[in-house]
Amino acid sequence: MSKAEEQVFYYSTLKFVETPLSYIEGSVPLRKEVALSRNHYRFVFDEFYQLKSIAFYNGETPRKPNHTANLFMLSHQIKFSYTDSTEHMFFFDSEGKVTAVLGNCSSFSYTIDERGYRKSLHFLDQDENRITNSWGIYQYQWSYQEDGSVIEERQDQAGESVAIRPGFEFYRLKLNFNHLGQIARMQNIDENGELIENSSGASQDVIYTNHEGNFLSWKVLNNSSDLEKGNGPNVALGRQFFNEFGYERQLIHFDENGSRIYSAYGICESRTEFDEFGNISERRFYDIEGNRGVHLEADYHLLKIEWSKDGNRRISLSYFTVKDQAVLHNSRGYHQVKYKYSSQNKLIRMSYLNDKGVLINRIDNGVAMIEFEYDSNGKVITTKKLNKDGKEI
Score class of each variant (00 low, 15 high):
Gly26Glu: 00
Gly333Arg: 14
Glu33Lys: 03
Val358Pro: 03
Gly159Ala: 06
Leu353Cys: 14
Phe123Lys: 11
Tyr140Arg: 09
Ser2Lys: 09
Tyr144Phe: 06
Glu228Val: 08
Val44Glu: 13
Val8Cys: 10
Tyr23Ser: 04
Asn361Arg: 15
Phe56Asn: 01
Asp93Leu: 10
His211Pro: 15
Ala264Pro: 02
Val322Met: 06
Leu124Ile: 14
Arg63Pro: 00
His253Trp: 12
Leu173His: 09
Thr83Gln: 11
Glu269Leu: 13
Leu36Lys: 13
Ser161Leu: 03
Asn365Met: 09
Glu371Arg: 13
Asp299Glu: 08
His295Ala: 03
Asn192Ser: 05
Ser134Thr: 10
Met350Thr: 09
Phe9Asp: 01
Gly116Asn: 11
Leu14Cys: 10
Phe170Pro: 02
Ser85Val: 08
Thr61Gly: 01
Tyr23Thr: 05
Met369Leu: 05
His179Ser: 11
Arg314His: 01
Gly258Ala: 14
Glu18Cys: 08
Thr132Ala: 08
Thr61Met: 02
Glu197Trp: 05
Leu386Gln: 10
Asn231Ala: 10
Glu371Ala: 06
Gly246Phe: 00
Phe108Gly: 09
Glu282Ile: 00
Ile137Thr: 12
Ala236Thr: 09
Leu303Ser: 01
Thr382Phe: 07
Val220Asp: 07
Phe274Val: 00
Asn231Tyr: 08
Ser351Ile: 14
Leu14Met: 13
Trp142Thr: 13
Ala184Thr: 12
Val322Asn: 03
Leu195Thr: 10
Ser342Asp: 10
Leu102Pro: 02
Ile207Gly: 02
His88Trp: 08
Ile381Gln: 05
Lys379His: 13
Phe177Thr: 03
Lys385Ser: 07
Asp93Trp: 05
Ser85Ala: 11
Ser199Glu: 13
Asp205Ser: 11
Asn257Glu: 10
Ile381Lys: 04
Leu14Pro: 02
Ser270Cys: 07
Leu303Asp: 00
Gly103Phe: 10
Ile137Asn: 09
Ser217Glu: 12
Phe170Tyr: 13
Leu303Gly: 00
Tyr117Phe: 09
Ile131Met: 12
Gly278Pro: 01
Asp113Ile: 10
Met350Arg: 14
Phe242Arg: 07
Leu328Asp: 02
Val44Trp: 04
Gln141Lys: 15
Met89Phe: 07
Val101Tyr: 03
His329Thr: 04
Asn291Gln: 14
Ser2Leu: 08
Asp275Ala: 12
